[in-house]
Design a protein around this nucleic acid. Structure first.
Lengths: 166, 166
DNA sequence: CAAAAAAGGTTTGAGCTTGAAATAAATCGA
DNA sequence: TCGATTTATTTCAAGCTCAAACCTTTTTTG
């Protein structure tokens, strides 16, 4: 999981007066550490539940989720693009999902290089179960937040990582 | 990297009226996806810079950071505790850091099972360089946020994942 | 058309990650 | 004291992850 990077969260050490950028840097660093901690913690819970309740992993779930969004299937490259994962990475995960019959590779007529990856019926059913559970887990974990707060937070986070493609 | 899990960010689909909890769930899910996306994006940048500029990895950096905070060294178990990583995980990373001379294992006098892990002089120097760069990278990435916004965000995130030990 | 470039994927090597099993040492309880 | 438990750590198998190298096939271009 690897949480903290630098964690000086615990050392407030009075306001580091002097020039302003010093203090700003610390505040930004602190925010980053909280952000990381929060997402890691949630992720850990999701991994754990996916494993114990569905005997699967987060990457597998992510692939199914992506394919569920694109009913016509996705090319490997498009898939790794959507997931923001390296090309080679997806190959292995899809291989295993194919073994388990949750996903198929379909030849693309005009192009002998490419193939489309699609959910099978089984994959579709299985994902529906998992997605429902997933949503409720998130609800449990973020339940402390009002929908308004949640919406507000979303907006602020968007300010940090805008939707520009890297 | 595995970003999106479920990403229905792209399907606003009008406000799902009906009972309230429905919409709330979506809002929470949306927040989670943003949170994940943001932290993954920042993490990806950090990994990349650590690799290209220091030929190291985030987990290694994290271990050094933890050890830098505890000058007297940490036992393996304490280290994996601080980092919130499995025990066996740390073993390998520390092994490699020892090979590179950045870290040492010190026998604990009264206990032949345990050992303390500490930064070497070299490790300490190296970490200082990396930490400075790290802080400035964070500054770059979060620079769009005023320190006030950052502080505010920190507080809200803390509401999601409070400091209770799991 | 033939050579070069680009596009789609897989393989590979190294490292990270986990949970579970294995070792070994220390401590506790009867 | 001796067996049982707990504590500290490592080993293991399986899977995820990346970047780089490597094939093909397709497209571009001279």
């Amino acid at each position: 999981m690897m949480d903290p990077h630098v964690d000086l969260t615990e050392t407030p050490e009075a306001a580091p007066r002097g020039d302003a950028s010093q203090g700003d840097a610390k505040e930004h660093l602190r925010l980053w550490l909280r952000l990381l901690k929060t997402s890691r913690r949630i992720e850990a819970v999701l991994r754990d539940r996916l494993r114990t309740e569905f005997d699967t992993t987060l990457p597998r779930f992510d692939v199914l989720a992506a394919l569920a969004r694109f009913e016509d299937g996705l090319k490997m490259s498009a898939l790794s693009d959507v997931l923001r994962v390296s090309n080679g990475n997806v190959t292995g995960i899809v291989d295993r999902l194919v073994e388990d019959g949750l996903v198929t590779r379909i030849r693309v007529p005009g192009d002998r290089r490419a193939s489309l990856v699609r959910l099978t019926g089984k994959g579709s059913t299985e994902f529906a179960r998992q997605a429902a559970a997933h949503e409720s887990w998130i609800g449990e974990m973020l339940g402390a937040l009002s929908p308004e707060d949640a919406a507000h937070l979303s907006v602020q986070l968007d300010a940090i990582s805008p939707s520009e493609a890297p």
